[in-house]
Design a binder for these strands. Structure first.
Lengths: 200, 200
DNA sequence: CAGAAACCGTGACACTTGTCATGGTTCTAC
DNA sequence: GTAGAACCATGACAAGTGTCACGGTTTCTG
């Protein structure tokens, strides 16, 4: 019997997935959580074989919770996501996450993935893997990413400069460089492109 | 027995919800679909008592599918959403949608909502209703909304002007006016605020 | 250890965005 | 029928963005 915990911040989805997985004769959902912190606490308490975590989940994201769980519990983590961004896949695998599946996966396939992962194997959805491998690696420097990340929150160059403790001219240089690398017309467009790729 | 169809573009979620709802003794999920067009076709074929549609679903959104279904089938529609934007609620109710629930709803509550709606009652989640009523109505004119909507796709004023067949100066005036009404520092910020409110 | 890349900054300049005033036409509401 | 709002446009100007050249310092890699 594979003992499992499941975390998703949407109660309807969480309830539905718990019900569905409990129908599998060899899978037992021992607990479920609505946020990352509760998931970590429940993983520590129940020591499950597998943890299924939604990627978009407070307080930060599913990778954060996965990190905490993997660091302190001998379990395996599967991340489930709606928008599979290649850069996020790389961060997940770097954190020794064992499975990465999109929400477009059929339920019976998720069950098979759970069994494979419980048996010690790794699983990355082939479509996600293909686009991650085909996709360019991030061409932006660490500071260019910082500037774009901040650009998503702040309205103007002045505010971004203050947040990052840089001169406005420096911020403009980084913005311009990032825009050129991503072939974007505005810094908002560049930030959106970096977000879509999972780089920020 | 309440006959039901369910549509959600994420197969895992759709499978889980179908399984969960079929556990209710008085609910029978007769069909399910992965997009709006299929949902419309299945509603016409099965003439269900209730249709549950995810709001974020291709080709346009769940409201589009709801509209089509309500126009041609004597059924009742419940929309399920992850990000409940007040303006979207108003558009949904304007299209005679009978139920509007967020994905944070517990499953047993969704079952009760289905029964109420099947019995001819309407249901709007109280939290969503409260924020929709408390929230300001849209202060923007139709053309200001057009400009912001286009601003989400286009990088610059020139392109927006071409798309809407307006002079660039006119677009700048609408942008400026919208920014003032929404207290935004850039047109991108204004567009994001309008999107968050469900006005575009 | 040397060279390259990244980080950081300044300054000049071109281009774009945003503000504001002004005014004509059309539509809507009282 | 009239007044007000919305739509549309032009022009002038200020503010902000983005480009580019240049250069110093620090970090990284071979």
């Amino acid at each position: 019997m594979i003992r499992l915990i499941l975390a998703d911040d949407e109660e309807l989805i969480r309830g539905a997935l718990v019900t569905l997985l409990n129908l599998e004769p060899d899978i037992d959902v021992v607990a479920s959580a609505g946020n990352g912190d509760d998931a970590v606490a429940l993983a520590r308490k129940h020591q499950p074989d597998v943890c299924i975590l939604d990627l978009e989940m407070p307080p930060t994201d599913g990778i954060y919770a996965a990190e905490q769980i993997i660091r302190s519990v001998p379990t395996r983590v599967i991340l489930v996501t709606r928008h599979a961004r290649p850069g996020v896949l790389r961060r997940a695998l770097a954190n020794r996450v064992s499975g990465f599946v999109p929400k477009s996966t059929p339920a019976d396939k998720l069950a098979r993935v759970i069994r494979d992962v419980a048996a010690g194997r790794r699983y990355v959805d082939p479509d996600i893997a293909a686009s991650a491998l085909a996709g360019e690696s991030c061409p932006l420097t660490s500071r260019e990413l910082d500037v774009l990340r901040e650009s998503r929150k702040s309205a103007n160059i002045q505010t971004i400069a203050k947040s990052l403790q840089l001169a406005p001219g420096t911020v403009r240089n980084y913005v311009s460089s990032a825009m050129t690398k991503l072939d974007a017309g505005t810094r908002q467009e560049a930030a959106a492109a970096a977000w879509d790729q999972g780089w920020i």
